[in-house]
Amino acid sequence: MTVTDQQEGQQHRPRIWAIGGGKGGVGKSVIASGLAMSLAARGERCILFDADLGGANLHTFVGMPNPQRTISDLFRRAAATLDDILLPTPFPNLSLISGARAQLDMANPAWLQKVKLIRQLTILPADHIFIDLGAGSSFNMLDFFLAAQNGLLVLMPTPTAIENTYHFLKASYYRRLRSVIRHLEAEDLVDAALATKVQNGVRSPRELLLDLQQRDPQVAQRLQRAMARFTPKLVVNQVQRSEDRELGAKMVIACRDFFGIDMGEPALIRNDERVLVALKSRRPVLEMFPGGPFAEDIRRLLALMLPAKEASHGQR
């Protein structure tokens, strides 16, 4: 697959968001649905795409107990395109592509057509598509993540979530790096750098790039420029204590040091009991508690991710 470099300028294509992070239970689905609800309420056409196959539950977050058509219909060839399985939700401007009843094992053969699927996504009639990636760092997850303009890495301030986040980040960074290297036909150069580096140990991608700089400044520069665009947003969820607040900023510094990428200001989402209360009544938390801390932090995340003009669009 070649690197998808979709620029801001493409007005009619939907903006694709991928919400990942490697760990289950950190809040990917509630955040994905919150973002979509919030933008839909502003009049933007939003689609939620549940790619958490085997653990699909995104429909529940928008109050739809039993989705009639799901991605499994696509795999069973009972439906031909994503358009056919697009479901309206109880909320204006918000549609859902459900992953319910699909299994991971049925996903894999069909997922071979993921390039086709990604292409289909980009022509759906919407302003925003939110892909809930589910847990894990499989190639399928990574390719969706890399195809998105807005990649979000959701984690909680716990060692296991951090571990999975770094694992996901490394896996997606290297997958992207590999495709850029292939694109630049720089395989030999990188192999040579790696061959000598391996003896001393390649400590980090940033050091690899520094080494390449010595060998071929031009290629290194192009590589660097392409990789500098890899800037997923860290979203620290369930923030409670002051250490939790600092965690994201520290991880951003560590990633700048390790990968040489600048992920910018991390997003914080406070722990908010209303999330569970809303979930239990099977209503979106943003609809039930639009003024609560969770809703407020979702709006702040949106402001971080969207250029000012776009964020205010539809509010008037």
């Binding site: 951090i162 980090s204 965690l247 520290k250 991880m251 390790f258």
Partner: peptide, 22 residues
Amino acid sequence: ELFDEASLATYSLLDYADRQEK
């Protein structure tokens, strides 16, 4: 502090040897 053994923010980012080198 960020790269200390006990730092949560770099947990699992570096292995032991890399951390020491850092």
